[in-house]
Design a protein around this nucleic acid. Structure first.
Lengths: 241, 241
DNA sequence: AACAAAATAACGAACGTTCGTTATATTTTT
DNA sequence: AAAAATATAACGAACGTTCGTTATTTTGTT
């Protein structure tokens, strides 16, 4: 039995967006590296610094092109041209266009799971838990905004387990928020006459707007910290005692 | 000079969703009829009861297929098969796939403009104006949910003026909300320490969630009236004095 | 009312092009 | 020189669109 590499000791820093951005960088590199290990039966090129860079470029280029015209419309020829890798070379990194989609989704999903799972531990009150969760979500969706947009817009093109996993991720986020609210109600921190599930829905909608309408907030110079605070204030104002 | 047919005398009824649904039916029929007149240089078949039904079917079939797999991926052959019109017949109703997209967008845009422009007139207070607007938007996006979803998801595939018109529509909705809020602040109906534009953004996100996550609210049995009320309550609670 | 003629609508095979993918050739690395 | 990585050429399938043809409806004539 081979020895597994130990988990990263990097901790997600929620102090502010800049510190978060720094703390997340190493985690994302680990994730691409892990992509290689998890898909070694599909990827024909050997893992190396060069090929890691190539895979990264393929993923980010594919996401960028897809976000302009859709994954189905993006041609392998265009991906080849923009990524400066020949068609033959591309097919050494993934066996089919469908598999490339899986690889892209694995990349994003792993990253998000990693971040969100670490944020709820350190808060004591429901109020803090809610604020932390909102901040973590806004922050990771800012760093991975292209992937979040990609994943959201391409879901309907997915099939089978890929579709299910994406929907599960959607609902998980929402039920995490719902749990925080319900716990807050139980502990007499929030009003008891509110509908936790509907408020969780609306919260999710606010969080999504951040990456679905990225251009709007960029244009207005709204920072991730500001948006997270405004969302939290509106929610908390509604649910507080 | 030919005499123009006078404007429809139908009035948009906001009493509740059911009454709204009834009042909107005639308006939507008029809009398809107007589509013929506006595009007579593109449409080869003459306006007739039969061809009106065909055009309706083409539009709704195209939207339905596109919402599953994307407009670009929908083939004319599939549109032909599902709509029960031959490929040749389809091309009598639109000169190209691109033009069909324009026709679909005209259909939806005209309908939405018609409804939203009528809702602001009859309210006196800013509070009522806000509530009416939210209700009108939820209601029309419920009736035309397929088109709203289509328009949202396909925007990035649009080019030139079609893209611009869609974005304009987006921003118009948002700035109408913003205007209501700013007016309310000016008239001492709402708090003065709130950011109207950011709240308008978040409001728009809530309104959009209704048609972007239609399945979720259907599953939970949330009615349009309930969702509109909940959105309004959360917003109003935040901005009221 | 019956028929002929003209107009309109619908049909579907075929065209040129582009797609994802594979097979083969070339270059780079070891 | 062997192996790995990259580049190029070629394949069949599917695409949007066109167009010669047929079916249907409307109009004109008696």
């Amino acid at each position: 039995m081979k020895a597994e590499k130990s988990d990263s000791i990097h901790i997600v820093d929620l102090e502010n967006f800049n510190s978060f951005k720094k703390s997340i960088k190493f985690i994302l590199d680990d994730i691409v590296s892990k992509l290689y290990d998890d898909n070694k039966q599909l990827i024909r090129v050997k893992k190396s610094p060069q090929s890691i860079e190539n895979l990264k470029r393929i993923i980010h280029t594919a996401i960028a092109i897809s976000n302009k015209k859709g994954y189905a419309v993006m041609s392998i020829r265009e991906l080849s041209a923009v990524s400066s890798l020949s068609i033959g070379a591309l097919y050494a990194y993934f066996p089919s266009k469908d598999e490339l989609l899986h690889i892209i989704q694995q990349y994003g999903r792993s990253s998000v799971e990693k971040v969100l799972s670490e944020t709820l531990v350190h808060a004591s009150s429901s109020k803090d838990k809610l604020y932390n969760f909102i901040r973590a979500h806004i922050f990771i969706s800012e760093v991975l905004k292209d992937w979040f947009y990609f994943s959201y817009m391409e879901t309907r093109y997915f099939t089978g387990s890929e579709y299910n996993k994406t929907i599960e991720g959607e609902l998980l986020t929402e039920s995490l928020i719902k749990d925080i609210i319900e716990n807050g109600i139980k502990n007499n921190e929030f009003r008891s006459d509110i509908q936790a599930s509907l408020i969780a829905s609306i919260s999710k909608a606010m969080l999504q707007d951040w990456y679905l309408k990225r251009w709007k907030y960029t244009k207005r110079g709204v920072t991730p910290d500001e948006y997270a605070l405004e969302c939290f204030k509106m929610l908390y104002n509604y649910i507080k005692l």
